[in-house]
Design a protein around this nucleic acid. Sequence first.
DNA 1: CCAAATGTTAACAATTTTGTTAACTTTGTC
DNA 2: GACAAAGTTAACAAAATTGTTAACATTTGG
Lengths: 202, 202
Amino acid sequence: MATKERNLQTEERIKQTAKQVFFAQGHLHATTQEIADQAGVNRALINYYFRSRDLLFQQVLQDAMSSLYDKLHLLFTAKMDFRAKIEEFIDTEINRMAAYPYLETFVIAELNRGDALAPRFPDHLRQALLGPFSEEVQAEVRKGTLAAVTTEHFIINLMSMTAYPMLAKPIVKMIFNHDEAAYEQSLQALKQQILRLIFRQE
Amino acid sequence: MATKERNLQTEERIKQTAKQVFFAQGHLHATTQEIADQAGVNRALINYYFRSRDLLFQQVLQDAMSSLYDKLHLLFTAKMDFRAKIEEFIDTEINRMAAYPYLETFVIAELNRGDALAPRFPDHLRQALLGPFSEEVQAEVRKGTLAAVTTEHFIINLMSMTAYPMLAKPIVKMIFNHDEAAYEQSLQALKQQILRLIFRQE
DNA sequence: CCAAATGTTAACAATTTTGTTAACTTTGTC
DNA sequence: GACAAAGTTAACAAAATTGTTAACATTTGG
């Protein structure tokens, strides 16, 4: 008996659309109808493939968490020159956030719903963080290329600067009176500006 | 005819509770029933004082926007030593965010609902930003106390570092395996760490 | 090509949430 | 203390949203 092949075309389209609605458009209150409409499918298909609205949400949440883990895994373990690694992290992270500005907002909003199960951070990631990566950071501190900060706060600040500007996109646009184009441009420039702030030599 | 005095005790209690639910607990999907329960009032009173759920949301949103404006106004116009001003901004901002971690999340989520009216950033604030405050920042850059960054990105980075760690509180706690106490402690230490990162002298 | 499995749809039912109304209570004022 | 205004409540009505079902369509394997 061959493995049952479900119609991934539709199932995947629904999930992708849900991500688009939640992560890109920031419609955290979106109904199943709205998602079905944008996906161009009958709403009942959401129940057919995902049983319930909640299970769709959980699947999307799982995917989002996975992508969070992936990006941190790369940062903590890649065997590259430290500065190059940070540059790449900033670059991919800003590009990712530009496509999905509200991914973390969605994750956080879902985590705050009483019923949500708190996901666990993979142990091997925390080991890499506390061990090898922390060594790298502190070596840079001793060299004087980084300010004297703890590894934990270095990571927090790095995540802050690469995530917040897109997470708070409407606020940033409002403060600086940016249209979409100006905002995009400011975002690209931000990459260099973060590097200048973090690293101590010219 | 004297001005009509409505029962501000109840009206205010409802609004305060709504802020607590949205900004502190992060229940962005909260129903009017949940708010009424936590406020200890009959749900119909929400309609009595605010007409509709949406109008309550809008009032809370307005208050949130005002507090955002206030904090920026202070940063842009206070006549203090630059470093002292930044220190104070970080301090009050982190304390505020610790009490209301999800204020900006709520604002952003509401701004992304199609029907919301985009609020305008007060002109006098943008003037102060582009004029006097920008002068201050660039003077510090010339002195070498700040890295060579644009005023815009300086502000964005500052807001990022003071807002994100609380905005993403569940994620931060998860990554570093913090309980509530450890998280609080990390937050207090963050203030100094941000200053070390921003300013160039020891 | 036929039959079983899978996919899709519209209609319906159940649930959740919001808004309204009318009766009742409290408060302030004369 | 009587009266009017404001405040409060439970019950009801309306709307929005989700979940289910049964009929229909399409695909797939023999």
